[in-house]
Computed example of a mutant assay.
Amino acid sequence: MRPLVVRSRGWRTAGLAERRQREQGFPHVTRATAGGNATDFTSAHLRLHSRDWQFRNGARTHRNDTFLTQAVGERYGQMAIKAVSSARSRCFHARGTVLYAVLGPFLAMKPSGDVIAGLAPRHRQLLALFLLNPNIAVHRDRLIDLLWNGRPTKSAPRNLTTYIAQVRRRLSPRDPALSPLHTVEGGYLLSVPPGSVDAAIFNHFSTQGRIARDNGDYHNAARMFENALSLWRGDALPGMRHVGELSAWGERLDEDRLAVTEDLFDVRLALGHHHEIVGGLAQWARRHPLRERPHRQLMLALHRSGRTHDASASYQRLRRTLVDRLGTEPSPATQALHQRILTGDDPPSALMRLCSAAQRTERT
């Protein structure tokens, strides 16, 4: 069974893409579902298999999408998504299901793996707004207000009706009546089956990782955090940030990505991988000079690597940056960690507890 490969401009064949991904060391990720099936992801492609996601396809170049030049699908396979809820199980058939990706440029995909072509910017914005309210009716007036940022034109109601009809045809070209976008009293509703949006899968992995971390299962926590991060293809929802609600959503998603990245650094420190992550932490701290958490992690990794002087220098750089830019000193937790390092008080569990306490303080 050929994998679904989603890749950037210039990668012409699935084989070349997969080879490059292996050479660059993209993580291979597995998600176990309620039925014991699995869904695999990498940061540059999606690999979907098992009874949850079934398809057979080849690769072709697809020139009609602004962000993505490779789509998959010379032959469409059959697929069924089995969504299990606490109340009942429902089966969503391929012709009524769409997969959505928002952790990067917006994508809508058929179950076979083909990227749905012909979605104009307004179409993508409209779908993204529905994904903010999945399976919930959204009133026409609310949609108009959101899509035009509170300043609708006189033609906005007519344009919205046109966009809805066009999106329906894009999502279900053979029979728009089978589209997951439904008309309800006063507005519209987008049917979104469980597991069909990458942001929801990201949240699932992140939650499982934090549960495992809190239970001391650091190996499984690291695996879950890596799974979550591998879903990302760039900043969330680029090109849509001029729509207020989508801008706020994109910023929340980006912040969640930062937090999970730092959660992964924490568990790798707990696993004793300080030598391996020093370089990555130094780069991460430089990219985010005002975030204290990665600087604490870097100080700890340097100290445990026998580089206490460099750890102290890292603290001094952070302090100068905070004073110069914000006029504030580092937080008490960061100062306490620096003092522990200077005095050589390094029981690993104590320092990890200190980092975790500082993290909880920042969140509150």
Rank of each mutant, 00 (worst) to 15 (best):
337 L>W: 05
74 E>T: 15
106 F>I: 04
280 G>V: 00
330 P>D: 13
42 T>W: 10
286 R>C: 04
4 L>M: 08
168 R>T: 09
286 R>G: 01
304 R>S: 03
44 A>I: 05
193 P>L: 12
344 G>P: 00
296 R>H: 00
282 A>K: 14
231 L>W: 11
85 S>W: 10
167 V>Q: 10
174 R>N: 14
134 P>K: 11
32 A>S: 11
34 A>W: 06
156 A>T: 05
248 A>V: 14
155 S>T: 14
285 A>F: 01
116 I>K: 09
203 N>Y: 03
213 R>I: 01
259 A>S: 05
155 S>R: 15
361 T>L: 05
159 N>E: 15
112 S>C: 14
181 L>S: 11
292 E>L: 01
13 T>E: 05
299 M>Y: 08
121 P>V: 10
102 V>K: 04
75 R>D: 08
220 N>V: 13
282 A>I: 00
287 R>N: 14
139 H>E: 12
319 R>V: 02
152 P>W: 11
240 M>H: 14
117 A>K: 08
115 V>K: 13
18 E>T: 12
55 F>Y: 12
331 S>E: 10
66 T>W: 08
16 L>H: 07
172 S>W: 03
1 M>A: 13
324 D>A: 13
141 D>F: 03
274 H>W: 15
175 D>K: 12
292 E>G: 06
174 R>S: 14
109 M>F: 06
208 Q>K: 10
112 S>A: 12
132 L>A: 15
300 L>E: 11
109 M>V: 14
193 P>H: 12
10 G>D: 03
78 Q>T: 11
249 W>V: 02
174 R>Y: 06
155 S>Q: 15
97 T>W: 04
45 H>W: 08
41 F>S: 09
54 Q>E: 07
238 P>E: 06
186 G>Q: 09
20 R>C: 04
43 S>F: 09
65 D>F: 00
95 R>M: 01
70 Q>F: 10
104 G>P: 02
156 A>W: 07
132 L>D: 09
289 P>N: 09
77 G>S: 08
262 E>G: 01
90 R>D: 06
266 D>W: 04
246 L>V: 11
296 R>F: 01
108 A>H: 07
244 G>A: 15
238 P>F: 13
9 R>P: 02
117 A>W: 01
301 A>Q: 08
291 R>Q: 09
199 A>C: 02
284 W>A: 05
1 M>L: 12
256 D>W: 07
52 D>W: 04
80 A>W: 03
269 L>K: 04
103 L>F: 07
329 E>Q: 14
351 L>I: 06
23 E>K: 12
142 R>N: 02
277 I>C: 10
263 D>H: 12
86 S>M: 04
12 R>M: 04
227 N>F: 06
102 V>R: 14
24 Q>Y: 03
41 F>G: 00
123 H>S: 09
304 R>Q: 04
104 G>R: 11
304 R>G: 07
139 H>V: 03
167 V>N: 07
4 L>N: 08
5 V>S: 07
91 C>T: 15
223 R>V: 00
328 T>Q: 15
153 T>C: 03
54 Q>T: 09
31 R>P: 00
32 A>R: 13
15 G>V: 01
307 R>D: 07
242 H>C: 03
11 W>L: 07
